[in-house]
Each structure stands twice: as structure tokens, then as C-alpha cells.
Design a protein around this nucleic acid. Structure first.
Length: 529
RNA sequence: GACCCCGUAGCUCAGUUGGAUAGAGCGUCACCCUGCGGAGGUGAAGGUCACAGGUUCGAAUCCUGUCGGGGUCGCCA
């Protein structure tokens, strides 16, 4: 819509001018600041705006063209609004589909939490963030592959086995000596009990059982993670990539790195010369005892990603991994790929309060808050919403009690309620949205025009939300739209008025947009509350 | 010390590509039910956009510096 307006001005200005959305409704739907063009011609901006206005005032798209200072304010005609309303009603939830100006193939990797414990709310934030990006991006027409990297090898998995072994032994009354590092927490005890039932007591008798328990426990945890994802309504992943499996290609990658002069030996270890491409220090990839570090696996994984030839690679990591970016990018560079194609988004921490009381998260200590518990407490939708109303790179703090509220303080509720109210009207009259396509809009009030206008912004909002990797823009937009609707609905009767048909058409558009937008956030719009 | 994120109303946070009078929710106060869903709406109070410079027609937004809060700095992941 905005694009069409910009195009109208291209012949007069030589380019598509910036088209602003004025905050104040008195200034119309769109405003074009002409300062830049006036200055280039050394003209007075007000005069320039007036002359520009005269050139477009006759067009059917505009009802009013008004120069104010250095701005040219535009009010769209009902005819123009009607055309868009018809498009929304015809296309329904396909509205805006494939509207990205440039379509890319993207490999999106997110969560990738170790299968050593259930997901906590920090993972939850990354999960919801990634899922929203995925849905929005796909709607816009990007080809996105969703991938989860499973760290199913190495020390963390060993520790899982050890922790289960210890917990099982304690359960059996066998002697237990706790080392400094192991996983605590209720889930370990429960899992160990499950292990006793399923595998018998044998693996717990002596230390050789640790490895078996690690393998078994990892599979169990992965299943639990998948259950958690499902409970949150996360779109199923296209790929689950196993570190263990991918690492079988290490020799191949190692040779490539050596050829590129990326590796050297020192103190019996193999180092990556990551300082060459901006890292603070070089990093060990193979330890003295021959075991690879985590980085080695990650290098192979990224090599594998780039070989698959996407336009872009997006990783969503916890903010605590930011120091890791430089070394991964340097490895990519050594392997002959363009590290600029790898975009790493950091999701900041989540702090949870309940009645003002802070909760702390620490996976090791075992007193972290599980996604599962939060879903049980407030439901998946409110949880998704609270994560998606904030920028991912800000520390997020919220009180659980507020999310349990069934009122406007709970955005998930509030938006759904707007949708349900409209559904209720259509249930009552027994008609479909599409039935109103033939209705001509010509006696709309200011509020109705404004409602339609903001509903038509959806494709633009989606584009912005995706390119900035900020799905919260969509959430906030939907909230505003719902709010505008509630306000309108509160003072405007729809049924049994002379304007009934036109008003139904307007709210049908609103409901379509709300449902579509909610869907892209992973929330199913409710028919009734 | 280095690097990353943040600093906007009492609290939690939005603020579009730099654009006109700075926004929401919660909390406080005052209102609106003869109504299609009041689980809603309207209004009031509340601001040195951390601070200081700079860039320009114009800065919460971009640049530099300072201060403050959080995070990371492993041969864990």
C-alpha cells in the first residue's frame, strides 16, 4: 500500500520518496516530508509541498492532499481502501503471502539446547523467537530450513551419564561419592529411577555403566525436549543434526583448515589461528589427550551448513555465547566461505518474578525454571506473548502472576478477545467474511477508515519484523489493532444500523488480520473465550 | 581490563527509514452498562528520553566521550 503511494510520486521527484506514517491522525494516512527535495532545488519546503500536492490532488487514490509546512499530508479515498479490503477478504490468511521484495534461502538454527536436561525458560525465549521468525519469514516467501543441533557427544553427555549413575546408586543404597561437577535437580533423580526400571540395576553397579546411562539418558532427554517444544507450539524442526554424526567428517575439515594455514601445534595441542580474523586469542581445537573441543565440532557443523549453499545462515544463541562468535566466523573464513552470511542473534536472559520474588536460573544447580512449569502455570500462548512483546536483545523481566490474568494486562488474552468478539457477531448473523466483498465502502467514519488503514499495514509490519529480526513488532502491532477495535466497538453499534453491511466488512477485515497475525506468532485465534 | 546488551512515566517495557504534540500495560484517581461478548471503553495525574558534546532543516533514534546496571571473557556447552 505504502509502496503504491510512493510510486505515484516517483515521476515528480525522480525516486520513490520516504512515506511516513504520521502519529497524529489529523495529518492523514501518509505524509511525505519534502525537505530533502526542496533543499536540492533551493526552494522553500512549504511552497514545494504545495506544488507537489497540486500534481496529485486529482488522483482517485486520494481523498485529501494537504501541504502543511514541509510535509505533504495524504488522506486515502474510500475507494482505495475498499480495494484493499476486498483483497484481504479474498485472500484471507494468504494475505501478504510471498510479499518479500527479495526472497532468500535461509538456514535457521535455534535452541540447540544440550540433551542433558529439560528446557528452561531461557531456551523457551530462543525457541519462541526462532519459531516466530520462521513463521513470519515463510509467510513472506523466504525458504527457511529450521534446524536443531544436538550436542550428543562430549563432556556434558558424560556428566549426564555420571549424574544418573550417582543418583541411581543413591537410590539403591550403594556407596556414592559426589565429584565437584555433576547435574543436580529433580529431573536427574526421576530419570535415574526410570533407568532402574528400564535397564535394571546392572548399569549402576560399576563405573562401566556410566557410558550406557549417558547414551540412554540423552535419548530420554531429547524426547522430553521434543515434548516441551510441542507443548509450546513450536513448529517441528526440519532437521535434527547430531554432533556425533557430523563429527565423523572432522578429518576432512581438518585437512582443509591445515591447507588454509589455520592450524598449528603448541604444547601438544592443536590450535585454531582465530586471531588472524579478529578473535582475541587463538583457540584450542584438539586437546593434549586427542579429544576435540566443542569448537571442533562446531567448525565441522558450520562447514556442513555452508556446503549446503544457503543465501544466509541465522543462529539464535543465548547471550552468554557471544564470545564464541569471533572464533566460529574465523573458522568459516579459513574454510573459504563468507562469514558475513552468518548472522548470530543473541537472546538475552529472562528473569522471572512471582509476587515480586525473584527466581534464579542455573542449570547446574538444578533450581532453574522449566518451560514445562511455566506452560502449566500460565499456558503456552501467554508465555509466547510475553517473550514476543520484547526485543530479544533486552533482558526480560516479568511477573508470572500478571500472565495469569484474564484481562487486558495479558496481551494474548486481549487480542484473542477482540477476535472472539467479531466471531460472535458473524456467528449470530450466520455469514462469511467473503459475503461482504460486493459491499461498497462509501460512508465510512474516520475511525473506520483508520481501522482499515492500520489493518492493511500488516504486510509492511511483517517485512519490518522479519528484516530487523524483531517479531515483537508484530505482537505490538496486533495489540494496537485490537485496542483500536475494542475502542471502536465500544461506542459503535454494528448490527441493525443503516451502515451494518459496511461495518461488517470493516470488522471482517480486522478479524482476518488478527487471525493471520496471531497465527504467525504461533497462536491460534480463538472463536470464543 | 577487553568485548556484548541495556539506560525513556513510580514499576515492566514500546517508540517504524532521523520527522510534526513522547506511548502502552501495571499501579493511583475520576468516569461509562436500556448495548452485537463490560473479560471492554473514556479521562486525569505522572517525563531534563542517564549526562556532555557533535552531525542537520529536524535527534529518544546516528557519531564520540563520560557515568550507571547486567552479561561474557574455559582445553564447559
Amino acid at each position: 500500500m505504502k509502496k503504491r503511494v510512493a510510486e505515484i510520486f516517483k515521476p515528480f521527484l525522480g525516486e520513490e520518496p520516504p512515506v511516513n506514517l504520521p502519529k497524529n491522525r489529523e495529518f492523514g494516512h501518509y505524509a511525505i516530508p519534502v525537505f530533502k527535495y526542496a533543499k536540492a532545488q533551493k526552494r522553500n519546503p512549504a511552497e514545494f509541498a504545495r506544488e507537489l500536492g497540486e500534481k496529485v490532488v486529482q488522483r482517485e487514490e486520494f481523498e485529501k492532499v494537504e501541504p502543511v509546512g514541509g510535509f505533504l499530508n495524504l488522506t486515502l479515498s474510500q475507494k482505495f481502501l475498499d480495494q484493499f479490503a476486498n483483497r484481504v477478504l479474498e485472500e484471507g490468511e494468504e494475505f501478504g503471502k510471498g510479499s518479500a521484495p527479495v526472497k532468500e534461502s535461509i538456514l535457521l538454527e535455534y535452541i540447540s539446547a544440550n540433551p542433558t536436561g529439560p528446557l528452561h525458560i531461557g531456551h523457551g525465549r530462543g525457541a519462541v523467537f526462532g519459531d516466530a521468525l520462521l513463521r513470519i519469514g515463510r509467510h513472506l516467501g523466504h525458504k527457511i530450513v529450521a534446524e536443531y543441533y544436538v550436542n550428543d557427544a562430549g563432556r556434558q553427555i558424560y556428566l549426564l551419564g555420571l549424574s544418573l549413575w550417582l543418583a541411581g546408586r543413591e537410590e539403591l543404597g550403594l556407596p556414592v561419592e559426589y565429584p565437584e561437577e555433576y547435574y543436580r535437580g529433580e529431573y536427574i533423580k526421576e530419570l535415574a529411577k526410570g533407568g532402574l526400571k528400564e535397564l535394571g540395576e546392572e548399569p549402576f553397579r560399576n563405573e562401566s555403566g556410566v557410558e550406557q546411562l549417558a547414551e540412554w539418558g540423552k535419548d530420554k532427554m531429547l524426547e522430553e525436549i521434543k515434548r516441551d517444544l510441542e507443548a509450546m507450539g513450536i513448529t517441528p524442526f526440519d532437521n535434527w543434526v547430531s554432533e556425533k554424526e557430523i563429527f565423523t567428517r572432522w578429518e576432512e575439515v581438518r585437512q582443509l583448515l591445515e591447507k588454509a594455514g589455520a592450524l598449528y601445534e603448541k604444547d601438544g595441542k592443536v590450535w585454531l589461528k582465530s586471531t588472524q580474523f579478529g578473535d582475541d586469542k587463538d583457540r584450542v581445537v584438539i586437546r593434549e589427550d586427542g579429544r576435540p573441543t566443542y569448537l571442533a565440532g562446531d567448525i565441522v557443523y558450520h562447514w556442513d551448513k555452508f556446503r549446503r549453499g544457503f543465501d544466509r545462515y541465522i543462529n539464535i544463541w543465548g547471550a552468554d555465547h557471544h564470545g564464541y562468535i569471533a572464533r566460529v566466523k574465523s573458522a568459516i573464513k579459513f574454510l573459504g566461505y563468507d562469514p558475513a552470511k552468518l548472522e548470530i542473534l543473541l537472546a538475552q536472559m529472562v528473569k522471572l518474578l512471582k509476587g515480586g520474588e525473584p527466581f534464579k536460573m542455573s542449570k547446574r544447580a538444578g533450581n532453574f525454571i522449566l518451560v514445562r512449569d511455566l506452560v502449566e502455570e500460565v499456558g503456552a500462548d501467554p508465555m509466547r506473548f510475553i517473550f514476543l512483546t520484547k526485543k530479544p536483545d533486552t533482558h526480560l523481566e516479568f511477573d508470572i502472576d500478571q500472565l495469569s490474568q484474564q484481562d487486558s494486562s495479558n496481551p494474548a488474552f486481549y487480542i484473542n478477545y477482540a477476535h472472539a468478539r467479531i466471531r460472535s457477531i458473524f456467528r449470530k448473523i450466520g455469514k462469511e467474511y467473503r459475503d461482504f466483498i460486493p459491499v461498497e465502502l462509501n460512508s465510512l467514519g474516520e475511525e473506520e477508515k483508520a481501522l482499515l488503514f492500520s489493518a492493511f499495514q500488516l504486510p509492511y509490519i511483517l517485512e519490518e519484523a522479519f528484516t530487523h529480526r524483531e517479531p515483537h513488532r508484530l505482537t505490538n502491532y496486533l495489540y494496537r489493532l485490537a485496542s483500536d477495535f475494542h475502542s471502536y466497538y465500544n461506542r459503535t453499534r454494528i448490527l441493525e444500523t443503516p451502515e451494518e453491511a459496511e461495518r461488517l466488512k470493516v470488522v471482517a477485515v480486522i478479524a482476518t488480520i488478527l487471525k493471520l497475525g496471531l497465527g504467525l506468532l504461533g497462536v491460534t485465534a480463538k472463536e470464543r473465550m
